[in-house]
Amino acid sequence: MISGHFQTVCSFSTSFLFILVPSKSSYGGFGFTFTISPTTNFEFDTVQGFRDGADARGNHIGLNFNSVTSDVQEPVVYTSDEGRKEDFQHETEPIRVRLDYNGSTQMLNLIVSPAKFPIAPSIPLISQRVPKLLDIVQEEMYVGFTAGDMSRVLTI
């Protein structure tokens, strides 16, 4: 993912669908992460408020860089093309996520929407310049998902 004479992170894009099946427990623990890591040693942050007063929201999406503390976090909602933040209608509704990173501008855009939409909204839930990826991304990286209890997450 690192290329060129000036050491830049190449542009990349990924998308996936998932369903979170709520636990009967009130302690959380059914979250998961999409991870890009130089090692297979991960630290999980799947319980609301786990070791971090800043992670106070239950259902949230956060950008974390070498830390369980989110640099940016937003509630799990989607933004309609009219600019309104909309909640998902059902807890077990399939969710589509698209993650785009532009290496030349260092902009990361994360779009979340119900999977039932034939065309996903184009307004990102999170749009953030992330120059620190250059300090994290190495020539070879592991890409995948981690979770405290994958039996409660269906990733498509």
Rank of each mutant, 00 (worst) to 15 (best):
Asn66Pro: 01
Ser67Val: 03
Ser67Ile: 03
Val68Gln: 10
Val68Gly: 07
Val68Ile: 12
Val68Asn: 06
Thr69Met: 08
Ser70Met: 07
Ser70Asp: 12
Ser70Trp: 05
Asp71Gly: 09
Asp71Arg: 14
Asp71Ser: 13
Asp71Tyr: 10
Val72Asn: 01
Val72Asp: 04
Gln73Ala: 09
Gln73Asp: 13
Gln73Glu: 14
Gln73Leu: 13
Glu74Asn: 04
Glu74Lys: 15
Glu74Ile: 00
Glu74Pro: 00
Glu74Phe: 08
Pro75Gly: 12
Val76Tyr: 09
Val76Pro: 01
Val77Met: 15
Val77Glu: 13
Val77Thr: 08
Tyr78Ser: 02
Tyr78Ile: 01
Tyr78Arg: 01
Thr79Lys: 14
Ser80Phe: 03
Ser80Pro: 09
Asp81Gln: 08
Glu82Lys: 08
Glu82Gln: 07
Glu82Arg: 10
Gly83Ala: 00
Arg84Trp: 08
Arg84Ser: 08
Arg84Asn: 12
Arg84Met: 09
Lys85Val: 04
Lys85Tyr: 07
Glu86Tyr: 00
Asp87Ser: 13
Asp87Pro: 12
Asp87Trp: 05
Asp87Tyr: 10
Asp87Cys: 09
Asp87Glu: 14
Phe88Ser: 01
Gln89Arg: 03
Gln89Ile: 00
Gln89His: 06
His90Met: 09
Glu91Trp: 10
Glu91Val: 04
Glu91Ile: 05
Glu91Gly: 06
Thr92Phe: 05
Thr92Leu: 02
Thr92Ala: 01
Glu93Ser: 11
Glu93Trp: 10
Glu93Ile: 08
Pro94His: 00
Pro94Leu: 03
Pro94Tyr: 11
Pro94Lys: 02
Ile95Met: 10
Ile95Asn: 05
Arg98Met: 10
Arg98Gly: 13
Leu99Met: 08
Asp100Arg: 10
Asp100Met: 07
Tyr101Val: 01
Tyr101Gln: 07
Tyr101Phe: 15
Tyr101Arg: 03
Gly103Ile: 07
Gly103Pro: 06
Gly103Lys: 01
Gly103Cys: 05
Gly103Asp: 07
Gly103Gln: 04
Ser104Leu: 14
Ser104Ile: 15
Ser104Val: 15
Thr105Tyr: 01
Thr105Lys: 06
Thr105Gly: 02
Met107Ser: 05
Met107Lys: 10
Leu108Glu: 12
Leu108Phe: 13
Asn109Lys: 14
Asn109Leu: 09
Asn109Gln: 15
Leu110Glu: 13
Leu110Cys: 15
Ile111Leu: 12
Val112Met: 15
